[in-house]
Design a binder for these strands. Structure first.
Lengths: 151, 151
DNA sequence: CTAAGTTTTAGAGCGTGGTCGAAGTCAACC
DNA sequence: GGTTGACTTCGACCACGCTCTAAAACTTAG
């Protein structure tokens, strides 16, 4: 469960943003921002000040946001790196990019379906407990003889 | 993504099942079955042969299945252990069990909602790629000037 | 100019959830 | 009784995705 930054975007100044500010806006820690860079998730190297400090542009924030959405839907770091590499490679691999995104999309749909399926059993058990507790019948729930529905 | 064992249940013989057979039926490796036991996920110790080997009953398989459903929906090992402890403690904590299950249930619903939300951006990008590829327009997708929608 | 606060790097460390290996025991069949 | 093969325990190991540390360099306010 992730804090999704849902406000109107504050404009990014010409000079770019410090890593701390970029972290605040994207909801990712500074540590993680640097880690993502090291891990090859970033398409274009982030600009630096003459002193070597990162300056994040609108552009970079948007890409990081894409990364966080892919992460939040369970794409592994490797998959995102692959996507970043394709984008970095430039024109000519758009079909591969589509494949990658489409297949991830389908996997997420499948994952959601699986969650919903498994949730059914849990919901059933919640109902059982709720029903019996309401009926003051709760001690029926733990039956030494192992009636499974109640466990 | 998990193989959900969706067949009619083969009956468990009086003598119980070997760990290998229990693994096959629950879709969990023997290593993991032992690990779950060590980790305190099992309410009642699994029966043993006189030689010390585990014999799994219907009962045990059902509990393991509950564990796998909880795992598949993202409940951490600690949470499942807590639930197992409550069940093992017997009568009198049914309200706590309900709390635990209910709160997990709600978390899963929230997780699904989050997945669906984040999936939207991915679906949009898939559509963009698909549209442009169909239009033979794909080289518009990587624009050096950084039009974000296309990346 | 100085002091305080940020950011830099490389690398180590951590939490989670298994997964595996070694050495020994048990069961089954010939 | 001997040989396979499955099973036992226990601790080590692994992949993943961060997360943190240390020491040095940069930036800014006063």
């Amino acid at each position: 469960m992730v804090e999704v930054n849902q406000q109107l975007p504050e404009p990014v100044p010409e000079t770019g943003l410090s890593i701390a500010e970029a972290a605040r806006r994207t909801g990712v820690s500074t540590h993680t921002l640097r880690y993502y860079e090291r891990a090859g998730l970033v398409v274009t190297p982030v600009d630096r000040t003459h002193g070597g400090r990162r300056r994040y542009r609108e552009f970079d924030l948007e890409w990081i946001t894409i990364c966080t959405r892919l992460r939040a839907t369970g794409m592994p770091i490797k998959g995102i790196r692959r996507y970043a590499e394709l984008v970095a490679a430039g024109r000519g691999n758009e079909d591969e990019r589509l494949d990658l995104l489409e297949s991830h999309h389908d996997q997420v749909l499948a994952k959601i379906a699986e969650l919903q399926e498994n949730l059914k059993l849990i919901a059933r058990k919640v109902d059982v407990y709720r029903g019996r507790l309401a009926a003051g019948d709760a001690d029926q729930l733990w039956v030494p003889n192992r009636t499974p529905a109640a466990r």
